[in-house]
Design a binder for these strands. Sequence first.
DNA 1: TAGTGGTCTAGACCACGGC
DNA 2: CCGTGGTCTAGACCACTAA
Lengths: 239, 239
Amino acid sequence: MPNPIRYGSQTTRIRKVLEEQIDQGLLRPGDKLPSERELSALFETTRITLKDALLALEAAGRIYCEDRRGWFVSRPRLMYNPQYRIHFHEMVTMQNRQASTQVLSAASTLATPELCRDLNLQPLTPVIKIQRVRSVDGRAVKYVEHNLIASRFPRILDHDLTQSLTCLYKEQFGYSYGRARFEIYPTAAQGIIAESLNLADSSPVLFIKRINYDQNGQILDSDLEYWRHDAVCVSIDSG
Amino acid sequence: MPNPIRYGSQTTRIRKVLEEQIDQGLLRPGDKLPSERELSALFETTRITLKDALLALEAAGRIYCEDRRGWFVSRPRLMYNPQYRIHFHEMVTMQNRQASTQVLSAASTLATPELCRDLNLQPLTPVIKIQRVRSVDGRAVKYVEHNLIASRFPRILDHDLTQSLTCLYKEQFGYSYGRARFEIYPTAAQGIIAESLNLADSSPVLFIKRINYDQNGQILDSDLEYWRHDAVCVSIDSG
DNA sequence: TAGTGGTCTAGACCACGGC
DNA sequence: CCGTGGTCTAGACCACTAA
């Protein structure tokens, strides 16, 4: 018994209804959706079909899922221009949002083959690896792994790593940023990346790799950033 | 009766096995995977579970799906630096790949509200809208919509639009590109975008908006690009 | 026309989050 | 402890592709 109004498919119908509720402001950014069971009862369908509709809305960036916590309406994307090395907190504050940072780990280790390529290092060179999670309005949106060439940052681990690394570089080591190279592509979050972003394994994320150079053109470090894919809009100006 | 070797979950197990086959070269870029029914029999599971594994590999960019045609192993991502306005064909050829272009439509229309914002136009200004699909190695990877300010491009519709627009701008109108502005974020393909890329509705794509200026800083046009999300790696240099 | 993925049903148990 | 999403079973019919 098909629905009297046809939309092409059940999932399309559900998607459009939910989308309209969001557009009309009945469901507002940050709001929690009813549970999948409630929604599937509401739309008189199964959880699998209902979930397909939710996944479509997630892909479009309209809603997001917190692992085992529920589905929520997305907030506007954070505008992020990686060319300007302004502090994360400053960038977020300028957009009238709340920022916070959590350090997951910070330790000295040896460069992996991929890191050697990126940072132009000899095999087995020591690097300092710092893992951090950055949140906006209380939601974890970016997992980032900094890889610093150890010899250029003596005793950096003694400092407070919650703050802006840009500041630390400048104040403690006299480095300021010169040029940088970026790679940007969508991928899937695995392991600690998924965990720290409260994502289910293999959820889509936007990956941004940056290789940073100092004011003299010497390589400083690389940042591997994984963004929740609905939370960011990369914005770039080119001359 | 769980599998003797545990991987955390069925889908993880299936994903890892397929990933290994790809890594080892037993399944090579461009190869077609067995059908979902064959694979689910092979892994002794249902199509839904099997599909979850395929979706995870798709999110990671390892495989892709052609609507109702089957699943294929992804080729290496095309490196794309939007700062350089070299021709698409030239860029693709330089990476030892085969390029082709198809024009879906080209017509004069009136600027939508969003276009007015992007191009800084008065309401109801005429624009020329060109829809194209670009393929690499025979696979449609990018849907692009060009929106030209009509008054700046008299009679452009009389020309061959399969070729590079950059060339056409230069040769017919004396325009060369100055600066450009970009926005990049993941979203979902709907309607003609999904169709022209042979994607199922609401499949994930990487969206790139560019606003192009001429050598005198005057706005020329905007490009709305939708890339198959496994097919591209955006690469940017910043001074 | 045969085979493909797209969609859908009607359930079930599990692991984890939060009270 | 209960509610949540995560995972999974065992089927079914449909729309479209490709030969």
